[in-house]
Computed example of a mutant assay.
Amino acid sequence: MKTSIHPDYTDVTVNCSCGNQFVTRSTMSKDTFHIEVCSSCHPFYTGKQKIVDTAGRVDKFNQKFGSFFKR
């Protein structure tokens, strides 16, 4: 590697709005970083995800293509 052309790679504390806090490494110049959603509070990762079915589209899709996914 060439010297003095790469950014500094330092520890950054990430604070989520849910209260979760973790440390990662980044080239950011900040020591702390605030995010709104993390893996501890995002519905996809917590298992609380809801599928919003608009006009029966999910059922229509499952009727048309559901046999492809069954084993």
Rank of each mutant, 00 (worst) to 15 (best):
V12A: 04
F44A: 05
T13H: 09
V58D: 06
R57C: 06
Y9Q: 06
K60P: 01
C18P: 03
F22E: 14
Q49D: 11
M28N: 03
S17P: 05
F61M: 13
C38F: 05
T24K: 14
Y9P: 01
V52K: 15
I5Q: 07
D59R: 07
G56P: 07
T24S: 06
C16W: 09
R25Q: 09
H34N: 10
F33P: 01
C41W: 12
K48T: 01
P7S: 03
S26H: 06
N15P: 02
F65E: 11
E36M: 06
T13D: 07
I35Y: 11
N62G: 01
H42T: 00
C18L: 05
D8W: 13
T24M: 12
N20V: 00
V23S: 03
T46P: 09
A55D: 15
D11Y: 15
N62D: 11
G66P: 06
K50M: 12
D59H: 07
C38Q: 06
G56K: 15
I35W: 10
S67T: 00
V12F: 06
T3L: 05
S40L: 08
M28K: 10
V23F: 05
K48Y: 13
T24R: 14
V37L: 14
F69K: 02
M28Y: 13
A55N: 15
Y9M: 11
S29G: 07
V52E: 14
V23Q: 06
Q63I: 04
N62L: 11
G19I: 07
R57P: 03
T46L: 15
V52S: 13
S29P: 09
C16D: 03
T3A: 02
H42Q: 05
I51T: 03
K60S: 00
